[in-house]
Amino acid sequence: MKNDVNRRFRLKTRPTGRIEKSNFDFVEEPIPEPGPGEAVVRVLYLSLDPTNRIWMSDMDQYMPPVGIGEVMRGGGVGVVVKSNSARYKEGDRVSGLTGWQDYCIADEGMRAMSVLPQGLPVELPTMLGACGMTGLTAYFGLLELGRPKPGDTVLVSAAAGAVGSVVGQIAKIKGCRAVGIAGGPDKCRHIVEDLGFDAAVDYKAADWREQLAAATPDGIDVNFENVGGEIMEAVMARMHASLRHDFRLQHRRPGHARRFFAHSHAPHRGARFHRHRLHGEVRRRRDAARHLGGGRQAETPRDHRGRPRKRARRRQSSLRRRQHRQAGGEGRGSALIVPARRAHASIRRVLPVLLRRCAV
Protein backbone atom coordinates (compact mmCIF):
# COMPACT_ATOMS: atom_id res chain seq x y z
CA MET A 1 0.00 0.00 0.00
CA LYS A 2 1.21 3.51 -0.78
CA ASN A 3 0.80 4.83 2.77
CA ASP A 4 1.76 2.78 5.79
CA VAL A 5 -0.06 4.84 8.44
CA ASN A 6 -3.70 4.71 9.40
CA ARG A 7 -4.83 8.01 10.88
CA ARG A 8 -7.77 7.61 13.24
CA PHE A 9 -9.96 9.68 15.51
CA ARG A 10 -10.86 7.95 18.76
CA LEU A 11 -13.58 9.18 21.08
CA LYS A 12 -11.81 10.49 24.19
CA THR A 13 -14.68 11.99 26.19
CA ARG A 14 -18.40 12.35 25.70
CA PRO A 15 -19.35 15.90 24.73
CA THR A 16 -21.61 18.00 26.90
CA GLY A 17 -23.46 20.35 24.60
CA ARG A 18 -21.36 21.26 21.59
CA ILE A 19 -18.62 19.00 20.28
CA GLU A 20 -15.08 20.15 21.01
CA LYS A 21 -11.77 18.94 19.61
CA SER A 22 -10.84 17.83 23.13
CA ASN A 23 -13.48 15.10 22.78
CA PHE A 24 -11.17 13.22 20.38
CA ASP A 25 -7.74 11.65 20.31
CA PHE A 26 -5.92 11.71 16.98
CA VAL A 27 -3.66 8.68 16.58
CA GLU A 28 -1.52 7.15 13.87
CA GLU A 29 -1.39 3.38 13.75
CA PRO A 30 -0.27 0.71 11.26
CA ILE A 31 -2.68 -0.17 8.50
CA PRO A 32 -4.58 -3.32 9.51
CA GLU A 33 -4.01 -6.63 7.76
CA PRO A 34 -7.07 -8.58 6.61
CA GLY A 35 -7.79 -11.93 8.21
CA PRO A 36 -9.73 -14.79 6.60
CA GLY A 37 -12.93 -13.47 5.03
CA GLU A 38 -11.84 -9.85 5.50
CA ALA A 39 -10.74 -6.97 3.31
CA VAL A 40 -8.91 -3.69 3.88
CA VAL A 41 -10.80 -0.63 2.66
CA ARG A 42 -9.22 2.77 2.05
CA VAL A 43 -11.72 5.48 2.89
CA LEU A 44 -12.35 7.88 0.03
CA TYR A 45 -15.29 9.89 1.37
CA LEU A 46 -16.50 10.32 4.93
CA SER A 47 -19.95 11.71 5.69
CA LEU A 48 -20.65 14.00 8.64
CA ASP A 49 -24.15 13.58 10.01
CA PRO A 50 -26.13 14.92 12.98
CA THR A 51 -26.38 11.33 14.19
CA ASN A 52 -22.64 11.47 14.90
CA ARG A 53 -23.51 13.60 17.90
CA ILE A 54 -25.99 11.04 19.22
CA TRP A 55 -23.49 8.21 18.77
CA MET A 56 -21.05 10.12 20.97
CA SER A 57 -23.51 10.21 23.87
CA ASP A 58 -24.40 7.41 26.26
CA MET A 59 -28.14 8.01 25.91
CA ASP A 60 -30.56 5.25 24.96
CA GLN A 61 -30.46 5.17 21.16
CA TYR A 62 -31.07 3.02 18.12
CA MET A 63 -27.46 1.76 17.99
CA PRO A 64 -24.94 1.15 20.76
CA PRO A 65 -23.08 4.36 21.58
CA VAL A 66 -19.46 4.67 20.52
CA GLY A 67 -17.31 3.47 23.39
CA ILE A 68 -14.64 5.65 24.95
CA GLY A 69 -11.37 4.84 23.19
CA GLU A 70 -13.09 3.44 20.11
CA VAL A 71 -12.71 4.85 16.61
CA MET A 72 -15.46 7.37 15.99
CA ARG A 73 -18.28 5.79 13.99
CA GLY A 74 -19.11 7.29 10.63
CA GLY A 75 -20.50 6.35 7.25
CA GLY A 76 -18.26 6.46 4.22
CA VAL A 77 -17.37 5.23 0.77
CA GLY A 78 -14.07 3.52 0.09
CA VAL A 79 -12.11 1.24 -2.21
CA VAL A 80 -10.90 -2.27 -1.42
CA VAL A 81 -7.08 -2.34 -1.47
CA LYS A 82 -6.46 -5.86 -0.14
CA SER A 83 -8.82 -8.78 0.24
CA ASN A 84 -9.02 -12.29 1.65
CA SER A 85 -12.75 -12.48 0.99
CA ALA A 86 -14.75 -13.75 -1.96
CA ARG A 87 -17.25 -10.97 -1.26
CA TYR A 88 -14.78 -8.16 -1.94
CA LYS A 89 -12.37 -7.81 -4.84
CA GLU A 90 -9.48 -5.38 -4.99
CA GLY A 91 -10.70 -2.20 -6.66
CA ASP A 92 -14.32 -2.64 -5.55
CA ARG A 93 -16.03 0.50 -4.33
CA VAL A 94 -17.91 -0.12 -1.09
CA SER A 95 -20.09 1.85 1.31
CA GLY A 96 -20.81 1.34 4.99
CA LEU A 97 -19.61 2.27 8.46
CA THR A 98 -16.00 3.08 7.73
CA GLY A 99 -15.33 5.14 10.85
CA TRP A 100 -13.22 8.28 11.08
CA GLN A 101 -10.00 6.78 9.76
CA ASP A 102 -7.99 6.24 6.59
CA TYR A 103 -8.37 2.46 6.50
CA CYS A 104 -10.90 0.03 7.93
CA ILE A 105 -11.68 -3.67 7.87
CA ALA A 106 -14.73 -5.03 6.06
CA ASP A 107 -15.88 -8.59 6.65
CA GLU A 108 -18.85 -10.79 5.82
CA GLY A 109 -20.56 -10.38 9.20
CA MET A 110 -21.08 -7.45 11.56
CA ARG A 111 -18.67 -5.24 9.63
CA ALA A 112 -20.02 -6.09 6.19
CA MET A 113 -20.18 -3.34 3.60
CA SER A 114 -22.23 -2.92 0.45
CA VAL A 115 -20.34 -3.41 -2.78
CA LEU A 116 -21.38 -0.63 -5.14
CA PRO A 117 -22.27 -1.59 -8.72
CA GLN A 118 -20.07 -0.57 -11.60
CA GLY A 119 -21.14 2.31 -13.81
CA LEU A 120 -23.08 4.31 -11.25
CA PRO A 121 -25.08 7.17 -12.83
CA VAL A 122 -23.99 9.48 -9.99
CA GLU A 123 -20.74 10.52 -8.35
CA LEU A 124 -19.53 8.42 -5.42
CA PRO A 125 -20.27 11.13 -2.80
CA THR A 126 -23.93 10.99 -3.80
CA MET A 127 -24.00 7.47 -2.36
CA LEU A 128 -23.65 9.15 1.04
CA GLY A 129 -26.64 11.40 0.44
CA ALA A 130 -29.58 11.25 -1.95
CA CYS A 131 -28.67 7.73 -3.11
CA GLY A 132 -27.36 6.60 0.26
CA MET A 133 -28.93 5.94 3.63
CA THR A 134 -30.49 9.38 3.99
CA GLY A 135 -32.13 9.01 0.59
CA LEU A 136 -33.29 5.48 1.36
CA THR A 137 -34.73 6.67 4.67
CA ALA A 138 -36.73 9.26 2.75
CA TYR A 139 -37.78 6.87 0.00
CA PHE A 140 -38.94 3.90 2.08
CA GLY A 141 -40.15 6.03 4.97
CA LEU A 142 -42.48 8.10 2.82
CA LEU A 143 -43.63 5.47 0.34
CA GLU A 144 -43.88 2.41 2.60
CA LEU A 145 -45.02 3.99 5.85
CA GLY A 146 -46.51 7.29 4.74
CA ARG A 147 -48.14 5.83 1.63
CA PRO A 148 -49.16 9.21 0.19
CA LYS A 149 -51.87 9.43 -2.40
CA PRO A 150 -52.07 12.02 -5.19
CA GLY A 151 -53.51 15.20 -3.77
CA ASP A 152 -52.38 14.52 -0.20
CA THR A 153 -50.66 17.27 1.76
CA VAL A 154 -47.28 16.02 2.96
CA LEU A 155 -45.65 18.07 5.73
CA VAL A 156 -41.87 17.71 6.12
CA SER A 157 -39.96 19.20 9.05
CA ALA A 158 -36.23 19.91 8.64
CA ALA A 159 -37.13 20.14 4.97
CA ALA A 160 -33.79 21.61 3.90
CA GLY A 161 -31.88 18.70 5.43
CA ALA A 162 -30.55 15.61 3.71
CA VAL A 163 -33.63 13.46 4.43
CA GLY A 164 -36.30 16.14 4.31
CA SER A 165 -35.15 17.60 1.00
CA VAL A 166 -35.54 14.19 -0.66
CA VAL A 167 -38.89 13.49 1.02
CA GLY A 168 -40.39 16.66 -0.43
CA GLN A 169 -39.21 15.90 -3.94
CA ILE A 170 -40.55 12.35 -3.82
CA ALA A 171 -43.88 13.68 -2.54
CA LYS A 172 -44.07 15.98 -5.58
CA ILE A 173 -43.24 13.12 -7.92
CA LYS A 174 -46.18 11.24 -6.39
CA GLY A 175 -48.55 14.11 -7.08
CA CYS A 176 -48.77 15.44 -3.54
CA ARG A 177 -48.67 18.93 -2.14
CA ALA A 178 -45.32 19.27 -0.35
CA VAL A 179 -44.99 21.73 2.52
CA GLY A 180 -41.64 22.11 4.23
CA ILE A 181 -40.57 23.60 7.54
CA ALA A 182 -37.10 25.14 7.56
CA GLY A 183 -35.16 27.79 9.44
CA GLY A 184 -34.61 31.17 7.81
CA PRO A 185 -35.56 32.86 4.53
CA ASP A 186 -32.67 31.35 2.56
CA LYS A 187 -33.58 27.77 3.39
CA CYS A 188 -37.25 28.41 2.76
CA ARG A 189 -36.44 29.97 -0.59
CA HIS A 190 -34.21 27.01 -1.43
CA ILE A 191 -36.82 24.32 -0.81
CA VAL A 192 -39.46 26.18 -2.85
CA GLU A 193 -37.40 27.54 -5.74
CA ASP A 194 -34.75 24.83 -6.06
CA LEU A 195 -36.45 21.70 -4.75
CA GLY A 196 -40.00 22.38 -5.89
CA PHE A 197 -41.87 22.41 -2.57
CA ASP A 198 -45.28 24.07 -2.82
CA ALA A 199 -44.87 26.12 0.34
CA ALA A 200 -42.38 26.76 3.12
CA VAL A 201 -42.78 27.65 6.79
CA ASP A 202 -39.97 29.56 8.49
CA TYR A 203 -39.93 28.27 12.06
CA LYS A 204 -37.57 31.08 13.07
CA ALA A 205 -40.17 33.69 12.19
CA ALA A 206 -42.44 35.05 14.90
CA ASP A 207 -45.54 34.14 12.87
CA TRP A 208 -44.53 30.57 12.02
CA ARG A 209 -47.81 29.20 13.36
CA GLU A 210 -49.77 31.49 11.05
CA GLN A 211 -47.51 30.46 8.17
CA LEU A 212 -48.21 26.80 8.93
CA ALA A 213 -51.96 27.39 8.92
CA ALA A 214 -51.78 29.31 5.64
CA ALA A 215 -49.63 26.63 3.99
CA THR A 216 -51.98 23.79 5.02
CA PRO A 217 -55.51 25.20 4.57
CA ASP A 218 -56.98 21.72 4.10
CA GLY A 219 -55.04 20.10 6.92
CA ILE A 220 -52.17 17.61 6.77
CA ASP A 221 -52.39 14.03 5.52
CA VAL A 222 -48.82 12.82 6.05
CA ASN A 223 -46.30 14.20 8.53
CA PHE A 224 -42.68 13.18 7.98
CA GLU A 225 -41.38 14.19 11.38
CA ASN A 226 -37.70 15.04 11.81
CA VAL A 227 -37.73 17.42 14.76
CA GLY A 228 -40.23 16.96 17.58
CA GLY A 229 -41.08 19.49 20.26
CA GLU A 230 -43.52 22.35 19.87
CA ILE A 231 -43.26 22.31 16.06
CA MET A 232 -44.47 18.72 16.03
CA GLU A 233 -47.30 19.63 18.39
CA ALA A 234 -48.42 22.44 16.07
CA VAL A 235 -48.29 20.08 13.10
CA MET A 236 -50.37 17.47 14.95
CA ALA A 237 -53.00 20.13 15.60
CA ARG A 238 -53.26 20.62 11.82
CA MET A 239 -53.69 16.92 11.08
CA HIS A 240 -57.15 15.60 10.44
CA ALA A 241 -58.87 15.71 13.80
CA SER A 242 -60.17 12.14 14.00
CA LEU A 243 -56.66 10.79 13.53
CA ARG A 244 -54.61 13.15 15.63
CA HIS A 245 -53.74 10.62 18.33
CA ASP A 246 -53.42 7.40 16.33
CA PHE A 247 -49.80 6.34 16.78
CA ARG A 248 -50.33 2.72 15.80
CA LEU A 249 -48.43 2.92 12.55
CA GLN A 250 -48.99 -0.73 11.73
CA HIS A 251 -52.77 -0.50 12.21
CA ARG A 252 -53.76 2.53 10.16
CA ARG A 253 -57.26 2.52 8.77
CA PRO A 254 -58.01 3.82 5.26
CA GLY A 255 -58.33 7.57 5.16
CA HIS A 256 -56.37 8.20 8.32
CA ALA A 257 -53.61 10.74 8.45
CA ARG A 258 -50.17 9.18 8.55
CA ARG A 259 -47.28 10.38 10.62
CA PHE A 260 -44.03 8.83 11.61
CA PHE A 261 -40.63 9.81 12.88
CA ALA A 262 -37.62 9.46 10.65
CA HIS A 263 -35.18 10.59 13.28
CA SER A 264 -34.68 13.29 15.84
CA HIS A 265 -31.23 14.69 16.49
CA ALA A 266 -32.56 17.32 18.86
CA PRO A 267 -30.85 16.13 22.08
CA HIS A 268 -27.65 17.84 20.99
CA ARG A 269 -29.52 21.14 21.11
CA GLY A 270 -29.54 20.96 24.89
CA ALA A 271 -32.16 22.20 27.33
CA ARG A 272 -33.93 24.34 24.75
CA PHE A 273 -35.36 21.20 23.17
CA HIS A 274 -36.20 19.46 26.41
CA ARG A 275 -38.32 22.38 27.64
CA HIS A 276 -40.86 21.49 24.98
CA ARG A 277 -43.40 18.93 26.19
CA LEU A 278 -43.61 15.79 24.08
CA HIS A 279 -46.89 13.95 24.02
CA GLY A 280 -46.90 10.82 26.18
CA GLU A 281 -47.87 8.76 23.16
CA VAL A 282 -44.72 9.83 21.35
CA ARG A 283 -42.52 8.80 24.24
CA ARG A 284 -44.23 5.43 24.51
CA ARG A 285 -43.88 4.80 20.79
CA ARG A 286 -40.23 5.90 20.57
CA ASP A 287 -38.81 2.42 20.12
CA ALA A 288 -41.39 1.53 17.48
CA ALA A 289 -40.40 4.58 15.47
CA ARG A 290 -36.65 4.00 15.57
CA HIS A 291 -36.51 1.57 12.67
CA LEU A 292 -37.12 4.49 10.30
CA GLY A 293 -34.09 6.03 11.18
CA GLY A 294 -32.70 8.24 13.94
CA GLY A 295 -30.90 5.92 12.33
CA ARG A 296 -30.20 5.64 8.77
CA GLN A 297 -28.45 2.33 9.41
CA ALA A 298 -31.70 0.55 10.29
CA GLU A 299 -32.91 -0.41 6.84
CA THR A 300 -36.39 -1.66 6.04
CA PRO A 301 -36.79 -5.33 5.09
CA ARG A 302 -37.43 -4.36 1.47
CA ASP A 303 -34.09 -2.61 1.41
CA HIS A 304 -32.38 -5.99 1.72
CA ARG A 305 -34.18 -7.49 -1.26
CA GLY A 306 -31.92 -5.65 -3.65
CA ARG A 307 -34.29 -4.84 -6.45
CA PRO A 308 -36.37 -2.19 -4.62
CA ARG A 309 -33.13 -0.63 -3.37
CA LYS A 310 -31.70 -0.41 -6.89
CA ARG A 311 -34.98 1.02 -8.18
CA ALA A 312 -34.92 3.61 -5.42
CA ARG A 313 -31.39 4.63 -6.31
CA ARG A 314 -32.19 4.89 -10.00
CA ARG A 315 -35.11 7.20 -9.26
CA GLN A 316 -33.16 9.23 -6.73
CA SER A 317 -30.23 9.78 -9.07
CA SER A 318 -32.25 12.56 -10.71
CA LEU A 319 -33.11 14.34 -7.46
CA ARG A 320 -31.61 17.72 -6.72
CA ARG A 321 -29.11 17.73 -3.87
CA ARG A 322 -26.34 19.80 -2.39
CA GLN A 323 -23.11 18.72 -0.74
CA HIS A 324 -20.15 20.52 0.76
CA ARG A 325 -16.86 18.76 0.12
CA GLN A 326 -13.52 19.39 1.76
CA ALA A 327 -10.81 17.91 -0.41
CA GLY A 328 -8.16 15.59 0.96
CA GLY A 329 -4.44 16.01 1.13
CA GLU A 330 -1.16 14.15 1.10
CA GLY A 331 -2.16 12.59 -2.20
CA ARG A 332 -4.59 10.27 -0.47
CA GLY A 333 -7.62 11.57 -2.28
CA SER A 334 -9.84 11.37 0.79
CA ALA A 335 -12.54 13.95 1.38
CA LEU A 336 -15.04 15.05 3.95
CA ILE A 337 -18.64 15.15 2.76
CA VAL A 338 -21.29 17.29 4.45
CA PRO A 339 -24.64 17.10 2.64
CA ALA A 340 -25.91 20.67 2.61
CA ARG A 341 -27.50 21.96 5.81
CA ARG A 342 -27.30 18.52 7.40
CA ALA A 343 -24.46 18.25 9.89
CA HIS A 344 -24.95 19.89 13.24
CA ALA A 345 -23.14 23.21 13.57
CA SER A 346 -20.70 21.99 16.21
CA ILE A 347 -19.60 19.11 13.97
CA ARG A 348 -19.04 21.45 11.07
CA ARG A 349 -17.14 23.81 13.35
CA VAL A 350 -14.82 21.29 15.00
CA LEU A 351 -14.06 18.83 12.22
CA PRO A 352 -12.24 21.26 9.91
CA VAL A 353 -9.91 21.99 12.84
CA LEU A 354 -9.30 18.29 13.37
CA LEU A 355 -8.79 17.72 9.68
CA ARG A 356 -6.22 20.49 9.39
CA ARG A 357 -4.39 18.97 12.31
CA CYS A 358 -3.99 15.65 10.52
CA ALA A 359 -3.64 17.22 7.04
CA VAL A 360 -6.58 15.38 5.55
Rank of each mutant, 00 (worst) to 15 (best):
L116H: 14
W208F: 01
Q101A: 00
R209W: 05
R73P: 05
H276E: 07
G37V: 05
T153W: 02
D221G: 02
R53G: 03
H256K: 11
A271K: 14
V115N: 04
M232P: 03
L249C: 09
E28F: 02
R325M: 08
L120V: 10
N223A: 15
S114E: 15
E90I: 10
L143R: 09
P352V: 00
A86D: 15
D218I: 06
V66Q: 07
A213H: 09
N23D: 14
I347Y: 05
L155N: 02
S57D: 10
M59T: 12
R341E: 10
A199K: 12
R357E: 15
H344F: 08
M56T: 08
F260K: 01
G196C: 02
Q297D: 15
S157D: 04
S95W: 05
A182V: 06
R93W: 08
I173V: 15
S95M: 10
R356Q: 08
R147W: 05
I337V: 06
A359V: 13
L11A: 01
E28H: 00
N23W: 10
I68C: 11
M1I: 11
S318Y: 13
G146L: 03
T137Q: 00
L48K: 01
S22P: 04
K204S: 06
A298R: 09
L48T: 03
R321L: 04
S57W: 00
R259C: 10
V222S: 03
R320E: 09
A178T: 00
R322K: 13
A199L: 09
I220D: 03
N52R: 02
M239Q: 12
A312T: 00
E225T: 14
A178F: 03
D198W: 06
